[in-house]
Structures are given as structure tokens and as C-alpha cells.
Computed example of a mutant assay.
Amino acid sequence: MTWHIFIPDSLLEESKDQKIRTYKIGQIARAASIFGVEHIWIYRAGGKDGKFIKLILEYAETPQYLRRHLFPLRDELRYAGVIPPLRTPHHKLKSKPKVGEIREGVIVKKGRMYADIGLDELAVVEDGKGLKGRHTFRIVSTKPLKVVLAQPEEYWGYKVHLTKKSLAKTLKKARLDVAIATSRKGEDVRRVKLPEFEGNIGFVFGSPRKGVLEILRDFNEDYEFDLILNTIPNQKTQTVRTEEAVLATLAVFNFIRRD
């Protein structure tokens, strides 16, 4: 089972303070990581912050030791310190290298390829001709330190997709097996007989001012969701923020995961 979440580019429309804006996105990154979301989609909903949301989400997902290579100093990252640490399996701490360990790394030299994998020395990349940027590596030797390309064997963070497309078009692009819209007007999740889910499961969230169905109407679109659910029944606040809805919804569905 692969989880996807869909958030609007208008996520920050009620937030003016840059620190608060960064923190809100960090909360979504943290919730996605807690529950093993593998894809975060940012769809067009009339907002202007899609690129900023993508930047902060990708910065949060990147292991700390790689950020200096992949994210040059820029004003948008001024408050990156308020992003909560994700502490996912690929956010490794510095330790003694172990044969078989998988780590994220970035190519830092050409010719004979080397990678920074967050240890005291650079690692020689075997069969690394033509590689650039960030990759996943497995340590195959410690003296000298050598790595090869590898596939992670556990949850390894999320990918961010900024489609610049409307919600319905973004959902079609994602090729989901099950699409679930969250809405205060949806069916009470406690009273719905949920099927056994398999494949690519998508959870769709609205903006601070407009729900999912309203956003679809604004773009003269229709989409046949498999379920439209209220995942926070009996809420005692007038509104639920998107980052709160993401956390609450994923927590509910985490109970029925079987993978």
C-alpha cells in the first residue's frame, strides 16, 4: 500500500508571517513522515505558494548532512530552523560505517566518483560513472569506504510533486486505486464500512477557506471519489487547519493499514 496526500497551493492563504508559514508546512512534513506517506502532491487551487511549499517540504525530507549541498542559502529558508526534525530511517546520524548500511548521499566529485554520505570521509562510488546529485547508496567496504547504488528496504521519505494542475487533473495524473476526499460535510468515518485498501491510496485536503468539493466547483470540475469522509466528527472548533486535518486523517487510517 502506498499513501499519497494532496494539498492545495493555497495552503498558506491565511498566514502572512514567514516563520508561521514555514512551521505549518513543517507540520505536514512531520505528519507525512510519521505515517509513511510516500507522495505529497501540491495541486492548483488559486494560491501563489506552490513553489515555496514544495521547497520547504523537500528541505524537511532531505537528511541534514546533505542540505548544504542541495540547498544554497536563500531567503525562503530563513526560518528553516522551526521545521521539526523528521527522524525517518534515512535521516542518519553520524556513526562508524558498517558494511550493508544504506545511506543517502550526494555526488561531490567527478572523475573517480565520490559521495558525501554523512560520515567523516567521502565514499568512493563504484560504477558511478555519469551520476549526479542525490542517490541512495549501500556501503560495501569500510577500508576504504566504498558504496554502490541501492534500493531502500524500509520507509525512505516522501517525494513532492508540484503539478501546477487543477485538483481533478492532478488526481488523474496520480493514477490512484482509491481516492478519499476529506470534508466536514462527508460521511462520518465511524459509520462507514471501509473496504480493504490496496495499491495507491490518496487522501485529498482542502484549503483554510475552501473545502475539496468547493475547490472542484471553482474550476468547473467533477471527480468521482471513492469516499468523501469527515475524519474529525464532532469537532469543537469552527475550523480545522489543513495540517491538523492531515495528521488526524492519517491517524485514523493508520489503524486499518495491513501492509
Score class of each variant (00 low, 15 high):
residue 110 K to L: 12
residue 160 V to G: 03
residue 236 K to E: 11
residue 187 E to R: 11
residue 45 A to I: 04
residue 252 V to E: 11
residue 127 D to C: 06
residue 42 I to E: 00
residue 12 L to M: 06
residue 66 L to M: 11
residue 139 I to A: 03
residue 209 R to Q: 14
residue 241 R to E: 09
residue 8 P to H: 02
residue 128 G to S: 12
residue 41 W to N: 00
residue 3 W to T: 07
residue 82 V to S: 00
residue 255 F to L: 09
residue 115 A to E: 03
residue 241 R to A: 03
residue 83 I to C: 05
residue 202 G to W: 08
residue 239 T to E: 12
residue 200 N to S: 07
residue 92 K to P: 00
residue 196 E to K: 07
residue 181 A to Y: 02
residue 124 V to K: 00
residue 250 L to N: 02
residue 224 E to G: 06
residue 151 Q to L: 08
residue 205 F to M: 15
residue 170 T to Y: 01
residue 154 E to W: 00
residue 143 K to S: 15
residue 43 Y to L: 03
residue 95 S to W: 06
residue 243 E to G: 06
residue 51 K to Q: 15
residue 160 V to E: 04
residue 5 I to F: 04
residue 254 N to T: 01
residue 39 H to D: 04
residue 142 T to Q: 15
residue 162 L to P: 05
residue 231 T to V: 14
residue 36 G to K: 01
residue 143 K to L: 10
residue 16 K to N: 14
residue 43 Y to R: 06
residue 213 L to M: 14
residue 19 K to W: 01
residue 179 A to L: 02
residue 181 A to Q: 03
residue 6 F to K: 09
residue 157 G to C: 14
residue 110 K to W: 07
residue 143 K to Y: 13
residue 77 L to A: 10
residue 234 N to G: 11
residue 72 P to G: 06
residue 31 A to P: 03
residue 54 K to L: 05
residue 255 F to D: 01
residue 172 K to L: 11
residue 232 I to A: 14
residue 60 A to V: 02
residue 69 H to K: 13
residue 109 K to W: 07
residue 16 K to M: 13
residue 165 K to D: 10
residue 146 K to I: 06
residue 59 Y to D: 13
residue 225 F to L: 05
residue 66 L to C: 01
residue 115 A to K: 03
residue 229 L to C: 01
residue 152 P to S: 04
residue 78 R to L: 15
residue 184 R to L: 11
residue 43 Y to K: 08
residue 180 I to Q: 01
residue 234 N to I: 05
residue 163 T to M: 10
residue 81 G to R: 09
residue 218 D to N: 13
residue 97 P to V: 00
residue 24 K to N: 11
residue 9 D to T: 08
residue 233 P to E: 10
residue 83 I to V: 10
residue 208 P to R: 12
residue 10 S to W: 06
residue 55 L to K: 12
residue 157 G to H: 10
residue 201 I to E: 02
residue 206 G to A: 05
residue 93 L to R: 05
residue 40 I to K: 02
residue 258 R to Y: 14
residue 110 K to S: 10
residue 177 D to E: 01
residue 1 M to T: 09
residue 141 S to L: 01
residue 174 A to Q: 09
residue 146 K to T: 03
residue 254 N to G: 11
residue 253 F to D: 11
residue 4 H to G: 08
residue 64 Q to A: 13
residue 200 N to R: 10
residue 125 V to G: 06
residue 225 F to W: 01
residue 139 I to V: 05
residue 119 L to C: 06
residue 125 V to S: 09
residue 87 R to L: 15
residue 231 T to P: 12
residue 108 V to G: 00
residue 247 L to Y: 03
residue 161 H to K: 09
residue 148 V to K: 08
residue 185 K to W: 14
residue 39 H to M: 07
residue 239 T to C: 08
residue 83 I to L: 12
residue 76 E to F: 07
residue 74 R to L: 05
residue 203 F to G: 01
residue 246 V to G: 02
residue 135 H to W: 13
residue 171 L to N: 02
residue 235 Q to T: 08
residue 222 D to K: 15
residue 147 V to G: 02
residue 4 H to C: 12
residue 59 Y to F: 15
residue 176 L to V: 12
residue 242 T to W: 00
residue 68 R to H: 11
residue 26 G to L: 02
residue 257 R to K: 15
